[in-house]
């Protein structure tokens, strides 16, 4: 039997999602076909709406609603304005927020340096980071403990050191080779509390 065109299209689109192979795509497509129409429509609507109404915060590059001019963290005067925590992904920011250990501001890089993947400093939000250091007393480098995350932290530490910005690194106590997103809250909270000066 040949699949109808609409089904082939759906399988192809699902198969383009990260981590979804051809078999999973087929399974998902058939699953969706068997769901009530209103459920499928509300999923489609949620996807379209998220794409339409979410964008990056112009200050910290985290996610915000496009109705706002800045994200809820940047907009919160209660937060310590002199502390800046640099993370790779919005998910890492959420993980640190869950730990409840941190009250300062954030900066989301949207990745880590990986020259072989074509990701250099210009592909990350490093220039905007360097332009928001006025009034910052300490930059906490909370990139992941992978080789790529360490390299990004070292690179930033050197830049920030040249600009005479006090720079610290979390990760002491965090298992090596992982993303912050997956660290448990207690470990993450401790890693932030025990941050240290980077040896350059």
């Amino acid at each position: 039997m040949r699949y109808p065109t609409a089904l082939i299209t759906l399988i192809r689109e699902l198969g383009r999602l990260p981590g979804i192979g051809p078999k999973s795509a087929q399974r998902l497509a058939l699953y969706l076909f068997n769901q009530p129409e209103e459920d499928v429509l509300s999923l489609a609507q949620a996807i379209a709406e998220a794409k339409e109404t979410l964008q990056r915060c112009p200050i910290c590059f985290s996610i915000m609603s496009s109705d706002d001019t800045r994200c809820s963290v940047c907009d919160d005067p209660q937060r310590t304005q002199k502390l800046l925590c640099v993370v790779e992904q919005p998910a890492d920011l959420l993980a640190i927020e869950r730990s409840g250990e941190y009250v300062g501001l954030y900066h989301v890089l949207h990745g880590s340096l990986s020259p072989m993947h074509g990701i250099g400093p210009d592909q990350l939000t490093i220039k905007p980071l360097l332009s928001r250091l006025d009034g910052i007393d300490e930059v906490i480098l909370a990139t992941s403990t992978t080789v790529e995350g360490e390299a990004t932290a070292m690179y930033l530490a050197r830049l920030l050191n040249d600009l005479e910005v006090n720079t610290t690194r979390i990760g002491y106590g965090l298992p090596v080779g992982g993303d912050l997103e997956y660290a448990d809250e207690v470990t993450l909270g401790r890693a932030i509390a025990n941050r240290r000066q980077l040896q350059l």
Binding site: P115, P121, R158, L160, L163
Partner: peptide
């Protein structure tokens, strides 16, 4: 890709900070 990127990585840390 790593060769295309090379100058942005090596030159930035040598010179960029002083220019910013």
């Amino acid at each position: 890709k790593s060769l295309i990127n090379l100058s942005s990585l090596t030159e930035t840390y040598k010179g960029e900070a002083s220019r910013v």
